[in-house]
Design a binder for these strands. Sequence first.
DNA 1: ATCCATTTGTGCGTATGTATC
DNA 2: AGATACATACGCACAAATGGA
Lengths: 81, 81
Amino acid sequence: MTEIDREGPVPPYRQIAAILRDRIATGEIPPGRRIPSLVELEAEFAVARDTLRKAVQVLKDEGLVETVTGMGIYVRTPDGT
Amino acid sequence: MTEIDREGPVPPYRQIAAILRDRIATGEIPPGRRIPSLVELEAEFAVARDTLRKAVQVLKDEGLVETVTGMGIYVRTPDGT
DNA sequence: ATCCATTTGTGCGTATGTATC
DNA sequence: AGATACATACGCACAAATGGA
């Protein structure tokens, strides 16, 4: 369980986005691989789906990940995919 | 078609769980027997599969039923199975 | 061995309502 | 009023297991 600071000024969805962004940057989650499902992330961060959706949306807007309906959310590779 | 109250405070998935729990308790659906499939329940209660999934999850947590992929949802017997 | 229909399992996308700050 | 968060519900797509033709 990863702790989220609910007191500070940074909303949970931004904190989670930052954490996932870091995991991608460090290669902990390499390109082409799927990131944990919303259900798993829900358990890890103890937040609602809605919050996770927003966090993922941030990464999608940054072009770091892309979602595939019925499959999951994948880390984008430098080139295609 | 069994009616579900969508006005009250009790969410549909809890109402459905209660209905199925009652059918099991009264013996209407005896131990070892299969419960109607999700498709059939979908028709009976006019709700989405996601809602039924949650209702079934409640009964699974209570140890009343168990699911078998490709087969169905079965009422557990006091002893095994 | 193959194919297909059935059934549950697992994902995400979207929408609505409520509550809090 | 607006942003954030949570719970619930519905829809759609794909995967895996089972059983029968």
